[in-house]
Design a protein around this nucleic acid. Structure first.
Length: 810
DNA sequence: AGCAAAATGATTTTT
DNA sequence: TCATTTTGCT
């Protein structure tokens, strides 16, 4: 045999031996390193294992498996190869053989692995460090979309007009800011809720539309025009506050890449291989981001499962994964369909449910595991009965040698947890609820964080407004609103305005109080500059001198938890100081917490049953799973029943839920259920009917769950049941009685105010509420508004936005 | 400015 | 039903 052929053969054998624990398909995915690759990884098919091994393969062997390149070889070399292939090599020989095999191996820092959660990124790093050693793993760029983008923007954000210490606004901050914007714009929340505005703006950012682009797309549609105005103001205020919201992190990064090709190029060059986890959950910007980055080397590997796409409501588009093959030429597709988790019966049930969906790639899971028990379907009388059934079953299981932690209860909505919790408490079953509200969402923690954010970035208006009167300092909303208007007028931050409150007639009445507040903050800011002051000292001092801690301490026994939480935050600051890889500072701490969630610290260690939503359970597995609330109107939910696309999403969610179970699955539906104060009677879920009879073991005193044909779920029966007019009509009455401005009225109001704005001309003498009389020197249109330069009699020349200054002709 | 009473409106939520 | 937000009043 010519040595070249033998070498190639030996190389394959050595590499394959190195990844023996995987099945054929998994190994194909590991070795296919060049070009675009789509891995369709079914539930429980060892996706993370593949990702980690693929990473290791690239570091160790590079593109060797797909290459026919052969190095110059001596006899000693060939002997080492043979020994390595036969498993008889010494350690030295083996590593020599590996180095002969490798073709362009790549250091870990040239590989990018993107996940959605910190938890997934952490897991990946952990498993990489087991495989490659901690040094290599530390270098690896394994991060979430958001943290990776934040990293890029901290470096190059100045090119978009942000500082390198910009603040990251979370959803709550965004909501507050949007509310303020709508108020400024005089947009009634009834006509455009802050929620609707934000979700529309989120969609705009997802489509890479700037406020101006959005505006020109809006055309004459009144509502869209309102949204365009809100978008442009919202974005302006974010920029003035040196802040970005979650969507901005991606949107701005893609804009940066477009605007500054050298930046894009440097990242393209760096990352020779890119892997994206949970690709079915990506949205449009994320797709663009990944596509741009991968255009350098073209080595993009995405892993996902179209059947587990359950985050459409957050902007995920299943099309990204469905169209991957057509978007990326010469794409290789590998399906991982062998499941290592569940029994055959559970998989069959999952397969039969998901097969009812139209919009999917198609995949059939199989397993070598045994058939196992049938799916147990239980009908109960009400939610109390449901809880009792779960509790009893867990106790029976524990009596038969199961652990509490073997059981999980997965529900559709958080509201369902109450009844179950009560039952578990009654039976003395230890349990934990995952999700719900997070530590960092607690009011007192958010307040404390707002103080820290303000110290870090005094331009952070949202933080400032949050705590300026917390504890009560006699600074009311009216004062803050006035100050905000002044700030808008002169293009300064709210903080700057109250810092010089004396200078503004409108708020001078409160100037002593405001001065007291800013003095406090200024002192804290000085402390923060001082390198000898540790972060936790800054924090505890802040709690002291602001009186924030004292406020809760005086609030009595019922608020003791808040004081505890504030102390807990101190320990997490100390934790950060201990573990921070760099010099710990305030900005670093805020960065870390902004992108952190504490669903991350679910540990399977303690022996308690877990309760969580089906969404939160994605990626987890449990020996025994309960799925309560399998009823029409709950799951699928009322809103989804009439929308085919939504229904498909709920069906995918059902698939995710079923495939969490390893051994035993209980599905429960209740005849009656108390929801939002009224008792409803719901039919069993159509998803139950999707599971073939032969897989079900039905425990049902009545006839209801024993196989209803899908046709019975459509039509009038439901119209009557769910569209009963009581609530709807009262809602209408309420709205009419509410005294809101009619759409026509509202339109008129707006248009008059905007037209007057443009009427101001240089030379006009005007009166400003704050600054008094003055003469307009110049006027220039800016966005939707007009920038006026006015020479005031009392305060000199100021630049003012016409729409926000309440000017009158003098 | 600050409080109590009344109204409102409710999936899911990786960042 | 229940938590949050707006309102109406002092």
């Amino acid at each position: 045999m010519p040595y070249k052929t033998e070498f190639l053969m030996l190389r394959k054998r050595i590499m394959e031996n190195d990844f023996l624990r995987m099945n054929d398909r998994q190994r194909q995915a590991v070795f296919h390193t060049e070009g675009p690759l789509l891995i369709l990884a079914g539930a429980g098919s060892g996706k993370t294992t593949v990702l980690v091994n693929r990473f290791a393969n690239i570091v160790k062997y590079g593109r060797a498996y797909q290459s026919t390149r052969v190095p110059m070889l001596s006899d000693d070399d060939m002997n080492a190869m043979r020994a390595a292939a036969n498993g008889t090599a010494s350690e030295q020989e083996y590593s020599h053989a590996v180095s002969l095999c490798a073709v362009d191996p790549v250091p870990a820092w040239r590989i990018l692995a993107i996940t959605f959660t910190n938890k997934a990124a952490g897991e990946l790093k952990e498993r990489l460090s087991l495989m490659l050693g901690s040094e290599q793993a530390r270098e690896a760029q394994a991060s979430t979309f958001h943290s990776f983008c934040a990293q890029i923007l901290r470096r190059y954000g100045d090119r978009l007009g942000y500082s390198n210490r910009f603040t990251i606004y979370d959803t709550d901050d965004s909501r507050r800011l949007m509310k303020q914007c709508l108020q400024t714009l005089n947009i009634n929340e009834r006509l455009l809720s802050h929620k609707a505005a934000l979700s529309e703006i989120g969609r705009a950012k997802d489509n890479l539309l700037s406020p101006d682009e959005y505006k020109s797309q809006a055309g004459k549609d009144f509502r869209l025009q309102q949204i365009a105005k809100a978008y442009s103001l919202y974005q302006r205020r974010l920029m003035e506050a040196d802040a970005m919201d979650f969507d901005d992190l991606l949107y701005m990064t893609v804009r940066l890449f477009t605007k500054e090709p050298d930046v894009l190029e440097s990242y393209q060059n760096r990352f020779r291989y890119i892997m994206v986890d949970e690709y079915q959950d990506t949205n449009h910007v994320q797709y663009r981001f990944v596509k741009m980055l991968s255009e350098g080397w073209g080595n993009l590997c995405v892993v996902g499962d179209d059947d587990q796409s359950i985050y459409k409501f957050r902007g995920a588009t299943i099309e990204n994964i469905l169209n991957f093959e057509t978007e990326f030429n010469n794409c290789r597709v590998i399906r991982l369909e062998q499941n290592y988790r569940s029994t055959q019966n559970i998989l069959d049930a999952a397969n039969s449910v998901i097969s009812k969906n139209e919009n999917r790639k198609g995949k059939v899971l199989w397993t070598n595991n045994k058939k196992g028990d049938k799916i147990q379907v239980n009908s109960v009388i009400n939610e109390e009965d449901e809880g009792r059934f779960i509790a009893d079953t867990i106790q029976d299981g524990v009596a038969a040698n199961r652990r509490y932690s073997d059981f999980a209860v997965l529900y559709r909505t958080n509201a369902q947890s109450n009844a179950i919790e009560r039952a578990l408490v009654k039976s003395g079953i230890p349990y934990r609820i995952i999700g719900g509200h997070r530590f960092f969402d607690n009011l007192e923690i958010r307040d404390a964080m707002a103080y820290l954010r303000l110290i870090n970035n005094p331009g952070d208006n949202v933080a400032l407004r949050r705590i300026i009167n917390q504890p009560k300092r006699g600074i009311g909303e009216a004062t803050v609103d006035k100050a905000m208007r002044i700030a808008d007028g002169i293009g300064a931050s709210l903080y700057d305005v109250i810092l010089n409150a004396d200078n503004y007639a409108d708020i001078s009445r409160a100037s002593v109080k405001l001065k007291h507040f800013t003095d406090m903050i200024e002192n804290l800011r000085k402390m923060n500059q001082d390198k000898n002051v540790s972060l936790h000292l800054l924090y505890t001092t802040m709690l002291e001198i602001t009186g924030y801690l004292a406020m809760w301490e005086q609030a009595g026994e019922s608020e003791a938890g808040r004081v505890e939480n504030l102390n807990e935050l101190a320990s997490s600051i100390i934790d950060y100081e201990k573990n921070s890889p760099e010099q710990p500072d305030l900005a670093g701490f805020l960065e870390e917490t902004a992108l952190m969630t504490d669903i991350d610290n679910y540990d399977a260690g303690t022996d308690s049953t877990v309760l969580m939503t089906m969404h939160a359970a994605k990626g987890l597995e449990f020996p025994v799973v309960f799925l309560p609330g399998f009823e029409e109107g709950i799951f699928p939910g009322m809103q989804t029943i009439l929308q085919p696309e939504e229904l498909e999403e709920d069906r995918r969610l059902c698939y995710v839920a079923i495939t969490r179970a390893k051994e035993k699955l209980y599905i429960i539906h209740s005849q009656r259920r108390m929801l939002y104060g009224t008792t409803k009677r719901n039919l069993p879920s159509r998803f139950l009917a999707d599971i073939p009879q032969c897989l079900k073991d039905i425990h049902d005193p009545s006839f209801l769950s024993s196989g209803i044909s899908p046709s019975q779920y459509e039509g009038e029966y439901y119209q009557i049941r769910y569209k009963k007019p009581d609530r709807t009509s009262t809602f209408n009455i309420r709205e009419n009685a509410g005294g809101g401005i009619s759409a026509a009225n509202f339109a008129q109001k707006r248009s008059t105010s905007t037209t007057t704005a443009s009427h101001w001309k240089p030379g006009d003498i005007v009166c400003h509420k704050v600054f008094g009389n003055g003469k307009i020197l110049a006027s220039s249109p800016m966005g939707n508004d007009t920038l006026l330069e006015i020479s005031f009699e009392k305060v000199g020349t100021k630049k003012i936005m016409a729409n926000y200054a309440h000017l009158t002709k003098a």
